[in-house]
Write a protein that binds this DNA or RNA. Structure first.
Lengths: 132, 132
DNA sequence: CTGTATCCTCTCTGATACTG
DNA sequence: CAGTATCAGAGAGGATACAG
């Protein structure tokens, strides 16, 4: 999980404010995780309430066990998702959003809403583009 | 032309259902383009105003010519970015946001803002995670 | 039930070189 | 200046089998 190497010349000052436009800003990988294919959907789904692994997998249609597991691990590591394990047989794990995760998920939800509400515009643009 | 006024409640109309959670929803690939590594940064950068190719490339630090070109093509195809060519030597191409692109970019901007403002929380979570 | 391990495929990505 | 072409490596993603 190493970030790309940096020369002294391009090194951003770690102490200054986070600027995602900077090549090696620490916020970039986090943004990627959040905006990733399954990260986005998982976060927005959890906005609906707590989910168990299998239920979340059904909600996020098409995700494999492997990718959902991996995605949730990353989101948990970044402090966006909380993972509650209830030791028992069969195992029971519940995923919830942290306060920060909720903030982020709400923005993603708005983004998705804008997109879904304007899919006809998008489709029209795509059709026009392909005619040229 | 279908009107898609959702002024009332979230219409659960079976006719126009754009549910990004569904495996084959057409909005999924669009979301991926928008939320892609360079798509996000390009859109938010264009929120600052029109950009020419090279200037945008300098703004989005780290992007290669190839990826920026590819990203902008996709965003243009989806109707989020407008590409204005001025035939001349040397060539001059200006990129601007469409109304929909502006809507989307604003949401992305808010998302990035939340993330940047809470990077200390994220870093703390990462540190805690790695201690376990 | 909730994952992890393995293997394999395919897309994304970047460096380089070249065109109008 | 604004790209496109090509190549090759890295990483995302999926299917399956297996473990706790």
């Amino acid at each position: 999980m190493d970030i790309q190497q940096t020369t002294a010349a391009e090194d951003a000052d770690p102490g200054l404010e986070a600027d995602v436009f900077a090549r090696n800003c620490t916020s970039r990988p986090v943004l990627q995780n959040v905006a990733s294919r399954w990260g986005t959907l998982a976060l927005v789904a959890l906005l609906e309430g707590p989910y168990r692994f299998s239920a979340l997998r059904r909600r996020v249609d098409g995700v494999s066990e492997r990718m959902l597991s991996q995605t949730l691990q990353t989101l948990e590591r970044d402090g966006l998702v909380h993972r509650e394990v209830q030791q028992a047989i069969p195992p029971h794990v519940e995923y919830t959003l942290t306060p920060l995760g909720t903030e982020v998920a709400q923005r993603l939800g708005e983004l998705i809403h804008v997109l879904e509400a304007n899919m006809d515009t998008v489709r029209a643009a795509q059709a026009a583009y392909h005619r040229d």
